[in-house]
Computed example of a mutant assay.
Amino acid sequence: MEKATFSGMEPINGTDVYYEYYKHESSRDTLVLLHGFLSSTFSYRRLIPLLQTEFNVVSLDLPPFGKSGKSPKFVYSYKNLADTVIRLSEKLGFEKVTLVGHSMGGQIVLNVAHSKPDLVDQAVLLCSSGYMKRMKPHIIFSSYIPFFHLYVKLYLQRSGVKQNLKNVVYDHSMINDEMLYGYLSPFLEDDIFRALTRMIRDREGDMPSAALKRIETPCLLIWGEHDRVVPLHIGKRLNKDLKNSKLVVLKDTGHLVPEERPEDVLQHIRSFMETAGVQESV
């Protein structure tokens, strides 16, 4: 993958947000990529080289993931993360963007489209989370126990990066050392686990059907047929609740569609944007 035109940290909402900006020499369309839970910009490593040949691309690490700040004082709610995306977009001078969100990132895309519809030309939801409830009260209460972050760390260590990757990709042969280290490296320091403990308290439930039905932004939903993390029936339900949406199902594909099927994702995004009349010829 080519190096970003520029990258760096931007102080927003009391934390540092890491982003990479791949600027196209002529395109007027900007795609902002939001990754999923326990992930980072790394999950778009196969998709960005394809997108950047046609669009301006910004990929950011949502706090507290990747290289972004991990402050235990930051509010890790979807509402505040959506506001963080909005503020970064405004700081970079974007008036209109296409938001692309994978898994949890898709839920944040929906929050942005709901709260700041004028910013979002269209939304692309890659196996977006949906209809999840807030953490149960006893788990939220337990998060206040001293050193609870160590329990979070132990839980994730027991599940293991390799096992988690096997759960999110259909073809296990694509899992190699580079992939393992890329998803493991952000979790080698304890700060992330303290922040995840705060996220347990802050994360509200996913947007309810009533709120989803008020979103008028054109939405493209791309799903893996064999997604075991956010099953296809969630995509079908979202497709019904979002009044201006289209669902595409990729065969022989799991949850991690940006890694598994980047060429197909590019093709569907391009077709979707052309149909919506937002991609201008130069």
Rank of each mutant, 00 (worst) to 15 (best):
V230H: 04
K153M: 04
R270S: 12
V97A: 11
I139K: 09
S68I: 00
E259P: 01
V124H: 04
D118L: 03
S71V: 13
V85T: 05
L110D: 06
I48R: 10
F55Y: 15
V85H: 02
S173A: 01
K246P: 07
F147S: 13
E178F: 06
E90K: 15
K240D: 11
F141S: 11
S281N: 07
L220R: 00
R134M: 08
D202T: 01
K246Q: 15
F187H: 13
L119N: 10
K70W: 07
Y21N: 05
F147Q: 14
L266W: 07
A195L: 07
L50P: 09
H255R: 01
H114S: 08
E259M: 05
K133N: 09
S77T: 00
L150S: 13
G105V: 07
R203P: 04
V58W: 04
K91P: 03
G106S: 02
D177T: 11
E178M: 10
L220S: 00
V152N: 08
Q267P: 02
R214V: 06
I12R: 15
V248Y: 08
P231N: 13
F187I: 11
R203C: 12
S245K: 05
P49F: 12
G235V: 07
E2R: 15
V17G: 03
M174P: 05
I215L: 00
R28I: 14
Q157A: 09
G224M: 11
M174A: 08
Y22L: 02
A113I: 02
H149W: 15
D252A: 01
D202Q: 00
D83A: 14
F55S: 10
F6W: 12
V265F: 03
